[in-house]
């Protein structure tokens, strides 16, 4: 059998130029049961990627929630993702923050590290360097809270591995445009 991409069949045909982009989308939706399932089902059903997804009600009186999705794909796929999201009835707006220009992206992580002696001191020093805060401490462990861009969190977490990393909980990305204008 020809491998996907090698064949000329409509079933196997794939785009040959593959510039994979990473986009952060803000999706404003009605805050109603099932809306998250619709969004996630669309991504899994059509084979799109979700890197992170966060959701919370943002406008209580209007019953609106904001879903922030970080996704990757070719420019054509990213375009399809936005158009397919637009077909969902509870979706009010989709803003591609990556295209909108200057944006702020932040993620929060809680990081548990266990150890004594030298590694324990080193973990604390690194935490200070990364502006992570100590949220809990015992004689043999710390829980750090760190906020920042996802790659900063990645870096901090990987540094903690040899120092006794036990557990990580991350929120996923929250994002907003810079400047005075709202969505």
């Amino acid at each position: 059998m020809p491998l996907p991409g090698e064949s000329h069949s409509a079933y196997f045909y794939q785009e040959t130029v593959k510039t994979i982009e990473r986009h952060t989308l803000a999706v404003i939706v009605d805050n109603e049961p099932g809306v998250l399932a619709r969004v996630i089902g669309l991504f899994s059903g059509r084979g799109y990627n979700i890197e992170t997804l966060t959701v919370s009600e943002t406008e209580h009186e209007k019953h609106l929630s904001r879903i922030t999705i970080v996704t990757t794909g070719t420019p054509a796929i990213i375009q399809q993702i936005k158009l397919q999201l637009g077909r969902l009835i509870p979706v009010h707006r989709i803003v591609d923050l990556t295209l909108a220009g200057a944006i702020l992206e932040r993620e929060l992580a809680l990081v548990k590290v266990r150890g004594k002696g030298e590694p324990r001191v080193e973990a604390l020093q690194l935490a200070e360097a990364f502006n992570a805060r100590v949220m809990d401490a015992t004689t043999e462990s710390f829980v750090f809270e760190i906020t920042g861009k996802s790659d900063k969190l990645d870096q901090f977490i990987s540094l903690m591995v040899p120092l006794g990393l036990v557990e990580v909980s991350r929120t996923g990305v929250a994002a907003i445009g810079r400047g005075p204008e709202g969505l």
């Binding site: 375009q79 399809q80 637009g86 077909r87």
Partner: peptide, 11 residues
């Protein structure tokens, strides 16, 4: 009438 039909399969 469905914007997602545009460029889905054919540019």
């Amino acid at each position: 009438i469905d914007a997602s039909s545009f460029n889905k399969n054919i540019r």
